[in-house]
Design a protein around this nucleic acid. Structure first.
Lengths: 194, 194
DNA sequence: CCTACCGATCGGTAGG
DNA sequence: CCTACCGATCGGTAGG
């Protein structure tokens, strides 16, 4: 009669499908460029039908950020957790980050939206900033475990290099930065033992 | 009677004032968020009066990109040309880049717009990509003069680190990355002599 | 450089 | 989840 805990209602499936597409669209066009009308047209729904799932554009944006965080965790973070903490895990995180850039049409969701929202105060910006801070904090933790003298600096460098590879790849189609990131990470690791 | 070469017409002054504001607005809100109506309101002009200077939104965007390139040349590149080529000039370029982030409300115009346009084919994207490629090429030239074993990799790393410092500063107000960039550049230079 | 428009699209609402 | 709307704003035009 009623839904069990395992059952996924039709509404939940629709909502998940909307957010899947919303993350892709936001990676491509930004969270402002993500319009309810366009999203509805791509999913062959009415605008108001889609709108009813969220109640406001801002709630759609917040749900999209949360869905992107889930996707990033599954595609980038969790696959690297099999590697031992410290240097092996930093290499695994870097590899899964670089690989996920080829998986999704819009490239890195966080690169696109963090730049877009850095000057737009509000809950959407706060959610994006929180996700980025958590990513940096994770890198810092692994850098510390790897024995980095300055884990914050190490984490910043790895963050900047991977995001930079995303930028260069998307703007110029240049894949050489992928190799430069790997080489730079190896150089950073070489400093660890000294 | 007629305008001499030195004379700046009123139309040219108005156009320059529009573009000055347009570069700031685009750094803050992106080149799509830069709307003719808002720009006109801020400059206390009519929409159509402003529009007449450019003829289309795309021409306004292209003129804004060109004005941003001029500003970057004056604020970042030219001040560093007094330093000797190679390592001293790389340090000077890095310093003037980091300083210019405090000078303008929206931070780095190129960080904001290159991410925004990496998925929007057309002349605006081409202009942005051309400016970024020229910046990378300049860094590569100086890295080669400094004796880098792989000038392209050196240039990419410096590009990624400086852009990364812009991102972290704007999203989290964290200025430590400015020091990390300086330290990383020093490490890169230390590799040169080896 | 202006006023006065245009059709399209925006986020959002009413009522079912 | 739909149709049928709303006021505001978008890029752009006509005519001066």
């Amino acid at each position: 009669m009623s839904a069990t805990a395992e059952q996924v209602t039709k509404g939940e499936r629709t909502r998940a499908a909307i957010l899947e597409r919303a993350v892709d669209l936001a990676s491509l066009e930004g969270l402002e460029g993500l319009t309810i009308g366009r999203l509805a047209a791509e999913l062959r729904m009415s605008k108001s039908g889609l709108f009813a799932h969220f109640g406001s554009k801002q709630e759609l944006q917040l749900a999209t950020v949360a869905a992107a965080a889930d996707r990033f965790r599954v595609a980038v973070v969790e696959p690297a957790m099999g590697a031992g903490e410290g240097a092996p895990r930093l290499r695994a995180l870097t590899e899964s980050y670089l690989e996920h850039l080829d998986l999704y049409a819009g490239g890195c969701f966080w690169a696109a939206t963090s730049i877009e929202y850095d000057d737009r105060p509000g809950p959407v910006r706060d959610a994006i900033a929180g996700a980025l801070d958590a990513w940096l904090a994770g890198l810092t933790r692994e850098a510390a475990a790897a024995g980095a003298l300055d884990p914050d600096r190490f984490a910043f460098e790895l963050y900047a290099l991977t995001m930079g590879a995303n930028s260069r790849f998307r703007l110029s189609g240049d894949r050489r930065p992928f190799e430069y990131v790997r080489a730079a990470l190896a150089s950073l690791e070489a400093e660890l033992g000294d």
